[in-house]
Simulated assay, not measured.
Amino acid sequence: MRQVAVLVEGRTEECLVEDVLGPVAEKRGLYLVPIVVTTSATPTRAYRGGGHWKHYDNSLRGFLGQRHWYRVALLVDYYQYPKSAPGRDCEGLGEARQRKLVRELRRTYPDPRFRPFVVLHEVETLVLAAIDAGQGDGWIPRKGLAALRRAVKEAGGPECVDDGPATSPSKRLEKADPNYMKTVTGPLLIAQAGLGAVLERCPVFAEWWEDLLA
């Protein structure tokens, strides 16, 4: 089975790869190996997203230098895109700027095996897609669910929900449910909705995913 290293920001993304993306990829003959990039750690050893790009750069160059990997992928959030990362200062908003960032990543690391992706606007966008697909009852309070579905509709889709410090997908989920568990509830709702239903609502993510599996 062909091995794919997937560099991620933290435990939330690691769970997504392990519990949701990995099983689907295996059916296509790919074994996804999530690798958390160490940027900074809390006293409990929990990794935080963002941080300086030098940590990602070191990891990427290391894995791209190992020839046994069929592909080397990268998942980082558009919101709090790492400091000094390729394209960080480029202009634009939303998907237009996201595509510029991906192009800069590919230009900086020209290895044909490299599959970078900047998630619009956070990986929790996929959770919003699952909720939009009808999931969340019994896991998130009814009032909070209604607010999340309304936000997706008003934005024009999960990937359009903005990246403001109080209105990013993760912040909206925390407001909807103060007990929301990023590494448990999120992957569970995505799995319950089915990856197909989530990808249907997240075409930018779906484009990267199909390219990774091709």
Rank of each mutant, 00 (worst) to 15 (best):
P82V: 02
G144C: 01
Q80D: 15
P158S: 06
P158I: 01
R106N: 05
Q135S: 05
E159L: 08
F114Q: 06
D137C: 05
Q98Y: 08
H121F: 03
L148F: 11
W139V: 14
Y78F: 14
G87W: 08
K143F: 07
L75E: 03
E154T: 09
L120T: 08
E91V: 07
L126V: 01
K100R: 14
D89N: 10
L93E: 15
E91S: 13
T125H: 13
H121S: 06
S84A: 12
P116E: 10
V161R: 00
D132E: 15
Q80V: 12
T108S: 15
Y109L: 09
K153G: 01
A146E: 15
I131R: 03
G156I: 14
K100V: 15
L93Y: 15
A73S: 11
G94W: 01
V76D: 08
I140S: 00
R113S: 04
A96I: 12
L105W: 07
L148P: 02
A85D: 12
Y79I: 00
P158N: 06
L120K: 01
E154Q: 09
V102P: 01
Y109V: 08
A133T: 11
A130H: 07
I140W: 13
P86M: 09
P82I: 01
V127I: 13
P110C: 07
G144M: 04
E159R: 00
C90T: 13
Q98T: 07
F117N: 12
L74A: 03
R107F: 01
V152I: 06
E91P: 02
P82W: 09
R107P: 06
G134S: 08
F114T: 11
R107N: 05
C160D: 12
A151F: 02
A129N: 12
P110A: 09
C160N: 15
D132C: 14
R113A: 06
I140A: 06
R103Y: 00
H121K: 14
G144P: 04
G136Q: 04
A96D: 11
G134P: 04
Y109M: 04
R113C: 03
T125Y: 09
G157H: 10
E104F: 13
F114L: 11
L145E: 11
Q98H: 14
R103G: 11
V102M: 03
G134V: 03
T108N: 10
L126M: 09
R97W: 01
L105G: 06
P112T: 04
V119W: 01
G94K: 02
D111S: 14
R142C: 10
E154R: 05
L148N: 06
V118F: 03
A155W: 03
L128H: 07
R107A: 15
P112A: 04
R107E: 12
E154D: 13
A151G: 03
K153V: 11
R115S: 07
R107S: 12
P112Q: 09
T125P: 08
R107Y: 02
